[in-house]
Design a protein around this nucleic acid. Structure first.
Length: 867
DNA sequence: AATAGTGAAA
DNA sequence: TAACCTTCACTATT
C-alpha cells in the first residue's frame, strides 16, 4: 500500500480546480477521464478527507447526471421554462423520477405487444426514438428516413425528429398523411398521441398543392386548387410579386393532357424500374417488407394522381428574380412549393442522347435515393446526402441518364469540374463533345442542340466585369431551359453569393448532392426553399457495415502541454495561442509516434494542420512532403503522384487546402494536429478522405482517424464541438491519454526539456519577428524564409503579397503589449463596420505610430475599392 | 504566359 | 460568443 499522504489544504483546492476544469470540458470524453485519473487519486490520496471528497464527488456526479439527462432530453429548453404542472394529475414517483423531471412520459400507456414495436415518441416536440435491436427496426428505419429527420444514429437507439420540412419531404415523395399516421401507429409502442396526429394533419394538409413550373422560360406557380392560388395571391408578399401577363387578372387555366394515362400504374417508381431492368439481381430479399410496403403506398397514390391530371390546372406567373422570395414565403405560410418535372412528356426541350454504360452497377442505397427522387415518374427537386466515397457522382449521373435532357453541373472548384466530366465519360455513353466545361480556361459549348455543361458556382455568380467569352456563355446559360441542375457540395449554396445561381439559371429540376449537410451558421435550412427537401440521407454506419465505405477507428489523443509552453499559452493572444497548441512538443511526439507506427503497418498517412507555421515545422522536422495553398500546381501534382505510387513517400502533410480542393489519393490513416475552430463540416469532410479506403480487409478497422489535442486548452472545447456530427453518425471517439512505448520511438523529437524550451523560444521568435520585419522594412519576402528553407520543396511564393496585408494587423498586435491589443481589436471592428461601403470618414487615426499607419493603409485601400 | 489583386467562404 | 487566417477562382497587368 502506498504511503498515505495527508492532503494539505492548498493541494485539495488545486485538485478541485483541476476537476472543475475537467468538468468544464464538455463532450463524451469527460466521464472516462474522471474514471481513470481523478477517481483513483481521490480515493487513495485523500483518505482523511473522505467525507468532503465524497460529498464533492456526489455533487459532481449528480451534476453530471443532470447534464447527461439534459443531453438526451428532447427540447432541454422547455425543461427550464415550465416549472409547475401541479394541476394535472398525480404521477407515480420512483427513484429514477428526478432524472426525468418534466420529461417523464411513463403515463402514456404501452400497447400490450409493445415489445414487437420499435418506436417511442415524445409528443411535445415530435421526436421519435427507434430501437435498432427490435426485429422490426429495418422496416421502421425505411419509414422513418422518409418522414423524419435523422438527428442522431449511434448503435442502438436512433433519434429522429418530425419537422414540417421532413413531413413536406414525405409528402413530396408520395406518402399521404393518413399513411404516415397509420404506419406510425403500427410501429409505436404507445398509441399515437393526439397532439402529434393533429400536428401531422395540420402540416401536411396543404403540402403538395402548389407547384413551381417552368414553361417557355417563365416561372409559374401552379395548382389544381384555384382556392389555394387565391389564398396565395391574397398574401401581401406573394400577391405583389405576380406578373400580370396580357392585362388579365384571372389565372391562366389549362388542362394537362400530356399527363393522363402516360404514367402507367406500377411503373411510377421509374428510376427504380429503370435500374431494376439494368440489374435485376440487385434487389435484396431482406428489404422486401419495407420496400413492398412503400411500393403499395406509391401505387395507391398514383391512382389518385391520374384523377388529378384530368382536372384543370391554374397558374400565375412570377418573375425569375422573385422565385426565391415566393418559395420562401410559401413555405412560411404553410404551402411549400413542390418542384416537379414531368420530363418524359416534355416535348419542348430536345432529348439528350445519354445512358448508363450497360455493365454499370448501382448500389442499393443509390437506387433507394434515386427512387425517392423519381418516386412518381417525375423528377422532384431535392437533396441527397451521401458520405464521401459512397458514389455521389454516380447518383447524379444516373439522374441525368434518367431525365435525358440538358444538364448543368455546378461544382465548387475548377478541379472538380474536370472530374465531373471524366466521371460522365466513364459511367455513361455520352458523346464527349456533348460534355462541355465552362471555367476561366475553357469556354466551349456543346456541339449539338443540347448537352451537359460543367461549371463552377463562382463562374456563374461572378458579378464583376466579365471577359467577352464569359459574357456570351452566361447569356447562353441564362437563355435556355435546363432539364436538370446538379449542385455538387450543395451545402455551399446558402451563402449570399451562391444562392444567386438558383435565380439566374432556369432548370426544371434541381438535385443537390452533399456529404455533410452542415454549416456553423443556421442557413442550412434555407436549402429547403432554395433547392427542395432532403430526399435521402444515408446512414454512415450502415454503409460501412455493408462494406461500401471504410470502417474507421476514431481517436482523440490528449497531449499535455509542458509547463513552460502552458505559461506562455496563458499569456499569449489568440493568434499565438493557436500556434502554441499546435506546436506543443508532446503533440509533435505523438504525431511522430503515430506516423512511425502506421508507416510500419503499411498505411498511407495524411496529416492535416490548419496552422501554416506548424505545418511547415512538422513536415520539415520529420522530413515529409507537404502541400499548402502556395504550392505551385506542378509541384502539387508531383507530390501527390509520389504519395500515391512511390513506396518511399507514405506521409503527406496538408493545410486546409486538402479539405476540398485537392483530389487526394487513397489514404488509410489520418492525423489532425490543428483545425478550424469548431467546424463540424471540416471534421466530417476530413474523415471522408479515408472512407474510400476499403481494400484492406485484414482486421476490424481499415482506416484510422486521430485528432491530436493539447490538454487544457481551447482545443478541447473545439474538438468536442467538431465531433458532434460524427458522434451523431454513430462514430465512437476513443480517448487516448497515453501512447504505449512512446519513449522507445527512434529519434523521438524534443525528448529533453532543453529541446522543448528551444522549440518554444524559436516558435515565439519566428512568429513575432515576422511581424516586426514586415512593418519596419517592408521587405520580408526578400529574405530566405523564416523558420528554415523549403526542405526540398523549392517553390516560388506567389501568395506573399496577399499574406502580408492579411497578416498585418494581427501580427502587429502580437508584437505589442496588452493595451495595444485592446485598441487594435476595437479599431479593427470599426474598420470592418465602416470600411468598403462609404469610405470611412477620416477620424482620429492619424499617422502617429506603426499601428495607425497600418490602419490608415487598410483604410485607403478600402476607400479605393469603394470608389 | 506568369503574376498581382480582389471578393468571398468559413 | 466571437474569432479571423487561409484558400480559392476570376480578371487584369507586366
Amino acid at each position: 500500500m502506498p504511503p498515505k499522504r495527508k492532503a494539505p489544504p492548498g493541494q485539495a483546492s488545486a485538485a478541485k480546480a483541476g476537476r472543475a476544469s475537467a468538468m468544464s470540458t464538455p463532450g463524451p470524453a469527460t466521464p472516462r477521464s474522471l474514471d481513470s485519473s481523478m477517481m483513483s487519486e481521490a480515493d487513495e490520496d485523500f483518505d482523511e478527507d473522505v467525507t468532503e471528497a465524497q460529498r464533492e464527488r456526489e455533487a459532481m456526479l449528480s451534476k453530471e447526471a443532470d447534464e447527461f439527462v439534459n443531453k438526451f432530453t428532447f427540447g432541454g429548453k422547455r425543461l427550464q421554462g415550465q416549472s409547475d404542472d401541479s394541476g394535472r394529475e398525480v404521477r407515480r414517483y420512483d427513484a429514477a423520477t428526478p432524472f426525468f423531471r418534466k420529461r417523464d412520459f411513463s403515463h402514456l400507456p404501452l400497447k400490450p405487444d409493445h415489445q414487437n414495436r420499435p418506436l417511442w415518441i415524445d409528443p411535445d416536440n415530435c421526436t421519435v426514438v427507434l430501437e435498432r435491436f427490435n426485429p422490426l427496426a429495418e422496416q421502421a428505419t425505411d419509414f422513418l428516413i422518409t418522414i423524419a429527420e435523422p438527428k442522431s444514429r449511434p448503435t442502438f437507439l436512433h433519434e429522429y425528429a418530425l419537422t414540417p420540412h421532413s413531413l413536406y419531404a414525405a409528402v413530396s415523395v408520395g406518402l399521404r398523411p393518413r399513411d404516415i399516421i397509420n404506419t406510425l401507429e403500427r410501429f409505436l409502442k404507445t398509441s399515437l398521441p393526439d397532439v402529434v396526429r393533429k400536428k401531422i394533419e395540420d402540416h401536411t394538409r396543404s403540402f403538395g398543392k402548389v407547384k413551381l413550373v417552368l414553361k417557355h422560360n417563365k416561372y409559374f406557380v401552379e395548382s389544381v386548387d384555384a382556392e389555394v392560388l387565391q389564398t396565395l395571391l391574397k398574401d401581401k408578399v406573394i400577391g405583389a410579386l405576380r406578373v400580370h401577363g396580357s392585362g388579365s387578372d384571372k389565372f391562366t387555366t389549362s388542362y394537362a393532357p400530356t399527363m393522363g394515362g402516360l404514367v402507367i400504374p406500377g411503373t411510377q417508381n421509374a428510376a427504380g424500374v429503370h435500374q431494376a431492368n439494368l440489374k435485376p439481381a440487385e434487389k435484396k430479399p431482406g428489404e422486401g417488407g419495407g420496400a413492398s410496403n412503400e411500393a403499395d403506398l406509391f401505387t395507391a397514390l398514383n391512382e389518385e394522381d391520374d384523377d388529378d391530371d384530368k382536372e384543370a390546372v391554374h397558374a400565375f406567373e412570377i418573375s425569375d428574380a422573385n422565385v426565391e422570395t415566393v418559395q420562401k414565403r410559401c413555405l412560411d405560410i404553410g404551402y411549400p412549393i413542390l418542384e416537379e418535372y414531368d420530363f418524359r412528356n416534355d416535348d419542348v426541350n430536345p432529348n439528350l442522347e445519354i445512358d448508363l454504360r450497360p455493365n454499370t452497377q448501382i448500389r442499393p442505397y443509390q437506387e433507394k435515393s434515386l427512387s425517392k427522387m423519381f418516386g412518381n415518374g417525375r423528377a422532384k427537386s431535392g437533396i441527397i446526402v451521401l458520405p464521401c466515397g459512397a458514389g455521389k457522382t454516380l447518383v447524379g449521373i444516373t439522374a441525368a441518364c434518367t431525365i435525358k435532357k440538358g444538364v448543368i453541373v455546378l461544382c465548387t472548384s475548377s478541379m472538380s469540374v474536370v472530374q465531373w466530366r471524366q466521371e460522365f465519360l466513364k459511367w455513361s455513353n455520352i458523346n464527349p463533345d456533348d460534355v462541355a466545361i465552362f471555367t476561366a480556361e475553357s469556354k466551349n459549348k456543346f456541339s449539338g442542340s443540347t448537352g451537359i455543361i460543367v461549371t463552377t458556382y463562382s463562374m456563374v455568380t461572378n458579378s464583376r466585369e466579365r471577359s467577352h467569352d464569359s459574357k456570351k456563355m452566361m447569356d447562353f446559360l441564362r437563355g435556355r431551359e435546363w432539364g436538370l441542375m446538379l449542385l455538387d457540395e450543395v451545402h455551399v449554396v446558402p451563402a449570399e453569393m451562391f444562392r444567386r445561381v438558383i435565380s439566374s439559371i432556369k432548370s426544371h429540376s434541381k438535385l443537390g448532392l452533399t456529404a455533410t449537410l452542415l454549416r456553423e451558421d443556421d442557413k442550412i435550412s434555407h436549402l429547403n426553399f432554395l433547392i427542395g427537401p432532403k430526399l435521402y440521407e444515408a446512414n454512415w454506419m450502415e454503409l460501412s457495415q455493408q462494406g461500401h465505405i471504410a470502417k474507421v477507428q476514431c481517436a482523440e489523443v490528449w497531449c499535455p502541454m509542458p509547463t513552460e509552453f502552458y505559461d506562455e499559452y496563458l499569456r499569449a493572444n489568440a493568434r499565438m495561442k493557436r500556434t502554441l497548441y499546435a506546436m506543443n512538443p508532446r503533440k509533435f511526439q505523438a504525431c511522430q509516434y503515430l506516423i512511425n507506427y502506421h508507416e510500419a503497418r503499411g498505411d498511407k498517412i495524411i496529416v492535416f494542420s490548419d496552422e501554416l507555421y506548424s505545418l511547415k515545422q512538422y513536415a520539415l522536422k520529420l522530413k515529409k512532403v507537404f502541400i499548402y495553398g502556395g504550392t505551385s500546381q506542378a509541384e502539387r501534382m508531383q507530390v501527390l503522384e509520389n504519395f500515391q505510387h512511390n513506396p518511399e513517400v507514405n506521409t503527406l502533410f496538408l493545410s486546409k487546402i486538402g479539405d476540398t480542393s485537392l483530389d487526394l489519393p487513397e489514404a488509410t490513416c489520418l492525423i489532425q494536429i490543428s483545425s478550424h475552430f469548431g467546424s463540424r463540416r471540416q471534421e466530417a469532410q476530413r474523415l471522408g478522405r479515408i472512407l474510400r479506403a476499403k481494400r484492406r480487409n485484414d482486421e476490424g478497422f481499415n482506416a484510422f482517424f486521430y485528432s491530436l489535442v493539447s490538454k487544457d486548452t481551447q482545443e478541447m472545447y473545439y474538438s468536442s464541438k467538431r465531433q458532434a456530427f460524427l458522434v451523431d453518425q454513430g462514430y465512437a471517439f476513443k480517448v487516448i491519454t497515453q501512447l504505449a512505448n512512446i519513449e522507445k520511438t527512434p529519434d523521438l523529437a524534443f525528448a529533453t526539456p532543453q529541446e522543448s524550451r528551444e522549440l518554444l523560444q524559436r516558435t515565439l521568435v519566428d512568429n513575432e519577428r515576422g511581424a516586426e520585419d514586415d512593418v519596419e522594412t517592408d521587405d520580408l519576402f526578400g529574405k530566405p524564409g523564416r523558420g528554415g528553407g523549403r526542405g526540398g520543396n523549392g517553390r516560388k511564393n506567389n501568395g506573399g503579397g496577399v499574406r502580408r496585408t492579411a497578416g498585418m494587423l494581427s501580427e502587429l498586435a502580437g508584437g505589442q503589449d496588452m493595451a495595444y491589443i485592446e485598441q487594435n481589436k476595437a479599431a479593427n471592428k470599426a474598420l470592418k463596420g465602416k470600411g468598403g461601403k462609404k469610405g470611412a470618414g477620416g477620424g482620429g487615426a492619424d499617422g502617429q505610430s506603426k499601428f495607425f499607419k497600418g490602419l490608415q493603409r487598410e483604410k485607403d485601400k478600402s476607400r479605393a475599392r469603394g470608389a
